[in-house]
């Protein structure tokens, strides 16, 4: 199996003399930090970049997707991507849209405590990720992190439905509006859902790694100045994801700016800042008005996933109608048709 390192806490060590951080994810570094890995799989480690994840851009997503695809084409049992946790959810969504027809799993892994601390969560997460890439029955893009604050179990979250929900806890990542797909306890996988894409080495991966960066994410709030939306239009942006309030609302003050954007062939999509739950834009007049203006409503899609997806959709086609169509089509389980009670908050 292969490990592609992009940086972040899991992949770095602090140099106490300089205070600087250096990448430390050669295969030998890995074995020295987590000796158990050598018993699970033969690891081929590649240092792609060494970035804190807040510095990752859509261009990096493309490179990561290409690197992962190359390893998979070379026939590895799975690929682990080491990544900073801050924007791990975005990269997970990006890879979910860029990598199609996966024969093997792609596991994104990080840690909340640096690997050079005795109490680091890196070891268990890495063991879980490597084990999954070698043996897990699923072949999807997932995030592997602690299930709880204990060093006991690892959760595997779907790349399009996962969000960092705590600044510092080990169990910061949560599956939103859905269940994690699997749990690893000791050496055993426990599948938590029935409907998943199965590992099948006969499949041929399809790579669609282009992203259009001219997409913005705007959070609606009391007093939001509609000239913010106008500014994006003037700057030539192709899409705006609104993180609306409640069931999918923005202030009436913004309606003219939104109408103007739609008339200028800019895709305006709605998500909710509530994080949990689904939009319901037909409930109140203002929601219906927004739909009438031409706002695309994105069901229970996470705002961050919606941003990545719109970038991806506009990277696939120049035609606005086709991009809109892609945006509302369920590509990688980013839209759940139904949400069960226990999956909500």
């Amino acid at each position: 199996m292969a490990i592609v390192s992009t940086g972040g806490t899991i992949a770095s060590r602090v140099d106490y003399r300089t205070g600087g951080v250096r990448p430390a994810l050669t295969a030998n570094d890995l074995y020295s930090v987590v000796p158990e890995l050598s018993e699970i799989a033969q690891v081929n480690a590649e240092i792609l970049f060494s970035l804190f994840s807040e510095n990752i851009t859509p261009k990096h997503w493309t490179k990561i997707a290409e690197a992962v695809a190359k390893h998979i084409e070379n026939g590895v049992a799975g690929v682990v991507v080491a990544h900073g946790t801050d924007t791990m959810g975005y990269t997970a969504a990006a890879l979910s849209f860029a990598l199609h027809n996966l024969p093997v799993p792609v596991i994104i892994v990080g840690s909340q405590r640096s690997a050079d601390r005795p109490s680091s969560d890196a070891a268990l997460n890495l063991i879980g990720a490597v084990r999954a890439s070698a043996n897990a029955p699923f072949a999807e893009v997932v995030v592997a992190m602690h299930e709880t604050v204990s060093d006991e179990t690892v959760f595997f979250h779907r790349g399009t439905k996962v969000r960092k929900c705590h600044t510092s806890r080990r169990d910061t990542f949560k599956s939103i509006n859905t269940s994690p797909i699997a749990r690893l306890r000791n050496e055993r996988f426990e599948m938590l859902i029935e409907d998943y894409h199965k590992r099948d080495s006969s499949q041929r991966i399809v790579l669609k790694p282009s992203f259009n960066e001219k997409v913005a994410l705007i959070k609606s709030h009391p007093g939001l100045d509609s000239s913010v939306i106008e500014w994006y239009v003037k700057k030539g942006f192709k899409g705006v994801v609104l993180e609306g309030t409640g069931l999918g609302h923005v202030s009436k003050n913004c309606f003219p700016a939104i109408r103007n954007a739609v008339e200028n062939d800019i895709i305006i999509a709605m998500t909710s800042q509530c994080i949990w739950g689904r939009l319901g834009m037909n409930v109140y007049n203002q929601g219906r008005d927004l739909l009438a203006i031409g706002v695309v409503q994105l069901e229970d899609m996470l705002p961050e996933t919606a941003l990545v997806k719109l970038m991806w959709a506009l990277g696939q086609t120049k035609h606005i109608r086709k991009a809109r169509k892609l945006l509302t089509t369920n590509i990688s389980n980013e839209i759940s048709p139904r949400t069960q009670a226990e999956e909500t908050a």
Binding site: Y16, R17, S32, V33, V34, A115, D116, R117, P118, S119, S120, A123, L124, T148, V149, S150, D151, E152
Partner: peptide
């Protein structure tokens, strides 16, 4: 209650406490 393991890590000088 929560369960943890502590891993001996290399010190700055690359030494690992043998007892740990």
């Amino acid at each position: 209650v929560f369960l943890r393991r502590l891993r001996p890590t290399q010190s700055e000088l690359g030494q690992i406490d043998p007892a740990a």
